[in-house]
């Protein structure tokens, strides 16, 4: 196991680089800036109030990036190859304005292999694609048991794997953060990328769940 630098999660602060915009904001950005600055001046809102609302949802920025990456990999074999070979570049292809996903590694589930991600020492997590880690991911029981008894842990998450499926556990570090590329659910043939995105859950990209096609999915 490689050394974990205890980098913890001061790295999920989003860089805004504000105050020295090299380029003018887009029209819609300018309108949002104008509206917020006026509402602040009038005392109708404070920046902190908006900050609180936004940060309450901030973690939701993340999982959608991962979900889009997965759905694209399901529908485009070339993209899938690029994603496995150079994850950071493949993520940037779909989300050029997002946080850089350097140190990301993508491990693909197959009918024979199921992948599970953990950080045994702390809570290293591919936040650029998945947002902030759920609290259980940071808990000591998950961090130890995901390694010592992964099948039991998966069962507790409601995922019972046949004994023929091998479970690979990947220990993340700040130098290498893993994300699971789950298998595309059966019965989703012909689905659009947008429809597929909606099936990809955060938990399926950590490896504690599998994306499920809704019952009665059209095939």
């Amino acid at each position: 196991m490689s050394e974990h630098t205890h980098h913890h999660h001061d790295d999920h602060d989003h860089d805004h680089d504000h105050g020295h915009h090299p380029e003018p904001p887009s029209d819609v950005e300018a309108r949002a800036l104008a509206l917020e600055s006026l509402l602040r001046e009038k005392g109708l809102i404070s920046g902190e109030e908006i900050d609180r609302i936004v940060s309450a949802y901030e973690h939701d920025i993340g999982p959608m990036i991962g979900a889009r990456v997965v759905a694209r990999a399901w529908t485009d074999a070339d993209y899938r190859q690029r994603l496995l070979a150079d994850p950071a570049a493949a993520v940037a292809e779909l989300h050029p304005s997002g946080p850089s996903a350097t140190n990301l590694a993508v491990v693909a589930n197959t009918p024979e292999v199921h992948n599970l991600v953990v950080c045994t020492l702390c809570s290293c997590y591919p936040w650029a694609v998945l947002g902030l880690p759920p609290s259980w991911y940071k808990s000591p029981p998950y961090r130890s048991r995901a390694v010592s008894e992964p099948r039991e842990v998966l069962k507790e998450f409601g995922l019972e794997l046949p004994s023929s499926v091998r479970v690979n556990v990947w220990d993340s570090s700040s130098d290498l953060r893993y994300m699971v590329l789950p298998e595309r659910p059966a019965g989703t043939e012909g689905w659009s990328e947008e429809e597929l995105v909606a099936l990809v859950t955060r938990d399926s990209m950590i490896g504690v769940a599998r994306p499920q096609a809704p019952a009665g999915a059209r095939s």
Binding site: H16, L35, I50, I53, V54, E58, D60, I61, P63, M64
Partner: peptide, 19 residues
């Protein structure tokens, strides 16, 4: 909502939502 979770793709979207 997608995945049952809220989605912002850029900071201004979150600000517009928060305002």
């Amino acid at each position: 909502r997608k995945n049952g979770e809220l989605v912002f793709e850029a900071p201004w979207e979150g600000r517009a939502f928060g305002m």
